[in-house]
Amino acid sequence: MKFGVVTFPGSNCDYDTYAAVRFILGEEVEFLWHKSSDLAGSDVVILPGGFSYGDYLRAGAIARFSPIMQEVVRFAEAGGIVIGICNGFQVLTEVGLLPGALIRNSHLRFACKQTTLRVERSDTRFTSGCDKGELLTIPIAHGEGNYYDFRGDIDELERSGQVLFRFVDATGEVTSEANPNGSANNVAGILNSKGNVLGMMPHPERAVEEILGSDDGLKIFKSVRAAFATPHPAGQA
């Protein structure tokens, strides 16, 4: 299978993501330039972290209009697997593939640290290799990762099972101390309603080897590969 990693001007996790897929996961991967209108036959498209277009105006606001994003939207709407990591998550909300918006961290500081995520579902294309309730150690690095709950929209996401990852403490409890950015309900990652698009603020590509402090992020990449190898049963996300 083949992964495509989009490079916007200002992306800075594209090489990390490329390396995680190619050298650790061991799958084919190609960079997709933002001006291109060709996904190069990718089976999975990843929008990496960084500061696309310098985060001018709003994080992800300019990137969403790039030529490659028009193809990513088409790909996602046809059921293709898309993952947005950090800035990629912001781009996915701006372009409308994921609901809601990410605003400035409530404490205003850039948050760069290891976090503990709780996997809320194991029946998705992104977490089939995890157990429900499993805790993953994956780092964050962002200034605008506060998933904003406007007028209770988060309740709808909770009801439909679209919250996939949550920031928790070491015992797996959702606490305000474990919330690094002020996100509604400690949200760290969400799915679209069809379950083929994932946005997450933590960086799984930075947690793919023990020497990096954790290899839990690899479980997400392996789950995606497994999902691709075995077409998903109807009714599952």
Partner: peptide, 9 residues
């Protein structure tokens, strides 16, 4: 920002 949206700045 809309009324009610947190404005940390």
């Amino acid at each position: 920002l809309k009324d009610g949206v947190l404005d940390p700045q």
